[in-house]
Design a binder for these strands. Structure first.
Lengths: 129, 129
DNA sequence: TTGACCATACGAAACCCTTCGTATAGCTTG
DNA sequence: CAAGCTATACGAAGGGTTTCGTATGGTCAA
């Protein structure tokens, strides 16, 4: 009766998930069209991937219409959280702070984002004391 | 004559790199012993992986002794930077701030680490104005 | 109704990752 | 020297990922 852990999505799967998160529930054709704008990819390739993702439980499929409608099973946040946790473990020896430092050093955050991060820091440090 | 981009290390490769970063230049046996403490893994498996990593350019090999000595080709920082950059692209739509938020929300940073991050933030915001 | 179009299903090829068995040769020591 | 240990090299199996060709059937309009 226990929930199986979310399988880590592969590269191709993640790009499909990103479309589903952005667009919401979508057909294979819609996902394919969205992906085609940035990368050449065959229709049946996307179809097959989404079928596999259904088996894995990464997406859920509504078969009530002829063109099945797929939806990401987990929220973008939920998935990101687990991807980050995995990376922290694998590449940063469990230190999420080290990852944060690397990400911030990669200079790509706007002033607005930086202050948002600062607010989060305030909240976190508030909790600690 | 152009530098090839660093190939992304696989899971198994990354755990070997972590040993090399921590220990410095090491033989296959030393890496194997270090890994064995946390995960069962055959000696020739580690050997084969390190041979492949040599071909990929992830490590460099000193063959002057009978037991070859391997060294990580790129610094831990350099590798982490590229792994993070890749993840930001693939999973966070290019926003490193979003990744930072996720990592920090994963609550696992000490007060000391948090203030270190805060200092980095100060420096970054200083640059912006 | 029939042909064009669009959908899913299926299977196989190509490639990569990981693992390990086995071959071969150097070293060391009794 | 011979036996035993230790090293690299090589190849192949097994599994996962990605791609795509092809089969099959539903839908719609002329």
């Amino acid at each position: 009766m226990s929930e199986r852990p979310i399988p880590r999505p592969t590269h191709a799967e993640l790009s499909i998930l990103r479309v589903l998160w952005e667009r919401g529930p979508s057909t294979v054709r819609e996902v394919h069209d969205a992906l085609s704008s940035t990368q050449a990819t065959g229709y049946t390739t996307v179809l097959k991937l989404m079928q596999i993702m259904t088996e894995k439980g990464l997406v859920v499929r509504d078969e009530s219409e002829r063109a099945h409608v797929y939806e990401a099973r987990h929220s973008e946040q939920r998935m990101q959280r687990q991807i980050v946790a995995d990376l922290v473990e694998r590449a940063f020896g469990g230190s999420s702070a080290k990852l944060v430092m690397q990400a911030l050093s990669g200079r790509k955050a706007s002033a607005a984002e930086l202050s948002e991060i600062r607010e989060l820091l305030d909240r976190l440090e508030g909790d600690k004391r």
